[in-house]
Design a binder for these strands. Structure first.
Length: 577
RNA sequence: GCGCUCUUAGCUCAGCUGGAUAGAGCAUCGGUUUUCUAAACCGAGGGUCGAAGGUUCGAAUCCUUCAGAGCGCGCCA
């Protein structure tokens, strides 16, 4: 029930027919023809640029062409009230009451599927997000990407795609060793009263390491904590297990659940790295060579040497990328190459990676690898979420790695709650930095968009409560002979735009469009609600505590649309506030 | 130095798969509650869409150059 799509189809059919009858010429590609939301001042429901697109190729005045086409569009269409041609050659269509009756009925019947694109091809997506190192709890920095990935998944699922959500666990490498060592020292601290070394800045000082140490001790596993090297592998497994539990609990509190946790170690143990590098060698994308020293400040200790490199410059990267370290172990990149090959072999149509802004420089090489391996150009799509600037007491709040000086997801949820966190993290495009103001987030006003939208839903629920109806029950057995006025149609019109916003959000992987739309819809509704003060006809319940059928359907489809949207965002719609 | 992202009202941002007179919120000023939720609503002022070129019938949107901000640029992960 996307009226923009329906009319686009109709218009395309008309011009294709005309071209077959040799009455007009049409371009091979009709993609630039659109049916869009007209600016408010034109007081119509949809508009199209067909005439403007066709005028040049037909050497005809667009205004005149538009007039001719509009006659054909209007012809026998029982939905159209008026059809006008505006200045350069836009065709503006206003629907009649019959249409809005029919529209409200259809939306009502679609229930929680309204806005979902059921026509498109069903694709298999793999979306990798969060993938934070399992060396500690999630902090605010991870939060935005986590929510972004989750809601992109929700949108794709809503549009009938198949989505697998994955977390890549970097349980291999130096960081993990440092982390394990930290746990080791904490265990010795607890067991033998040895002081945790403070002079080693490779170690993780955070208090959560103590918790992990305690948890491991409480398991009473037979393990001697005297020689780190002897037990490092066993302890590593235990420590990672604990920190993953912590991370999963953080994610759960954000309302996020992954389908799969893919271990880096497993990929290395399965020899998948060697396999993929052989494969790339065969394709001539891997060679032995030298790369230049990095430009960063302290590259004095840079030793130029021959090493195994991936030819990412073939795909437009600045330089080729190292696959092997000097001790012959694989680089992080190498195992990630194997991981992506693993993804490709699982036969997904599209791979999506959600990355933090600090990893944006990594995109080129990884998309290059995926292209080299799959021979498909846009197989892997990387979305970057920009930084979150924390603001407390009107001042930027800087997080540092020093102990206790960073805000975890847990802190965030305890202070502002899951829903507000989700809604605000999504309220801006992922391409721009986001100010996260602790004080404003907790405010319960228009400033806080979550409450503004929830309040709209709660207001509708209050009407249902008043007349002893259940908001979740279906509206049935109603004859549709409503006569909606201008104000109601304004909102119905807004609702008609919902599928279009979902569609763009889905195609461009831009979830912020959903909260932005919901805010606008809520605003229209609040506005309507307040009309009831001056105009009794605008109130939902009459003197006899009854509601008219048109008002009932009206409320039902508004609340329905809000609920669908809020479910995609992953927040609650309380019935009372 | 190179790469990615950003630059729209005093502030925070929508709008960008090219379209018509560029929209919200906050802040400022002025109003609304015998009424289904005032966590709300209505009104007013506020703009060279960073700058300059280009493509186009048409540019905030696409391209080029420049300026400013953020992030990144290791055999780290």
């Amino acid at each position: 029930m996307n009226i923009f799509e329906i009319y686009l189809e109709k218009i395309k059919n008309i011009i294709v027919k005309l071209s077959k009858e040799n009455q007009i010429v049409i371009p091979d590609n009709l993609n630039s023809i659109n049916v869009d939301i007209p600016p408010a001042q034109f007081k119509c429901d949809i508009s199209t640029n067909v005439a403007l697109v066709l005028s040049k190729i037909n050497k005809q005045d667009p205004f005149e062409l538009a007039q001719n086409l509009s006659k054909l569009i209007k012809n026998k269409d029982k939905n159209i009230d008026t059809i006008n041609v505006a200045k350069p050659g836009f065709i503006n269509i206003k629907f009649n009451n019959f249409f809005w009756n029919d529209f409200s009925k259809k939306v009502l019947n679609l229930k929680d599927e309204y806005g979902s694109n059921t026509k498109g091809k069903k694709l298999k997506y793999l979306i990798e997000f969060v993938s934070a190192n399992p060396t500690g709890p999630l902090h605010v920095g991870h939060c935005r990407g986590a929510i972004l990935g989750d809601v992109i998944s929700n949108i794709l699922i809503f549009n009938n795609h198949n989505v697998s959500k994955e977390y890549y666990v970097n349980d291999h490498g130096n960081q993990i060793m440092n982390f394990t060592k930290s746990v080791f020292f904490r265990i010795r601290e607890i067991k033998y009263g040895e002081k945790f070394p403070t002079n080693n800045n490779e170690l993780y000082p955070g208090d959560y390491i103590i918790d992990i140490a305690k948890d491991i001790i409480s398991k009473k596993i037979k393990l001697e904590f005297d020689d780190f090297d002897k037990i490092s592998n066993k302890l590593k497994k235990l420590a990672i297990e604990q920190s993953l539990l912590m991370i999963k609990s953080n994610l759960k509190n954000l309302g996020i659940f992954h389908d799969n946790f893919q271990s880096e170690t497993k990929i290395i143990e399965n020899k998948e790295v060697q396999l993929v590098i052989d494969l790339l060698k065969k394709k001539k994308f891997v060679y032995e060579g030298k790369i230049e020293a990095p430009i960063s400040e302290d590259n004095k200790d840079w030793v130029e040497r021959k090493q195994l490199l991936f030819k990412s410059t073939d795909f437009g990267d600045d330089k080729d990328r190292a696959l092997q370290k000097s001790d012959n172990s694989w680089t992080y990149f190498a195992s990630d190459v194997a991981y992506h090959n693993n993804k490709i072999n699982r036969n997904f149509d599209i791979l999506i990676n959600i990355l933090g802004a600090d990893h944006a420089g990594y995109i080129k090489r990884i998309t290059s690898v995926v292209e080299a391996l799959s021979n498909e150009k846009n197989k892997l799509i990387c979305k970057v979420s920009q930084l979150v600037k924390l603001i407390k007491d009107n001042k930027p709040f800087k997080m540092s790695k020093r102990k206790g000086d960073y805000i975890t997801v847990e802190d965030l949820i305890n202070q502002v709650g899951k829903d507000a966190t989700r809604f605000i993290m999504l309220s801006r495009s992922s391409d721009v930095e986001l100010d996260f103001d602790f004080d404003k987030v907790k405010e319960k006003s228009k400033e806080n968009h979550l409450y503004y939208v929830q309040y709209c839903y709660a207001r509708i629920c209050s009407v249902f409560r008043k007349i002893n109806k259940d908001i979740n029950e279906d509206v049935e057995n109603i004859s549709y002979d409503f006569n909606y006025g201008e104000e109601e149609i304004k909102i119905l019109n807004k609702i008609s735009q919902w599928p279009k916003h979902v569609d763009i959000a889905s195609k461009k992987l831009e979830p912020h469009r959903i909260p932005v739309y919901l805010y606008e819809l809520a605003s229209d509704f609040h506005s309507y609600w307040n009309m009831g003060r001056d105009d009794k006809k605008k109130r939902f319940i009459d003197e006899d505590n009854k509601i008219a059928n048109d008002k009932l359907v009206f409320l039902k489809i508004i609340s329905n649309t809000i609920k669908i949207g809020m479910q995609i965002v992953g927040v609650n719609t309380p019935t009372k506030m």
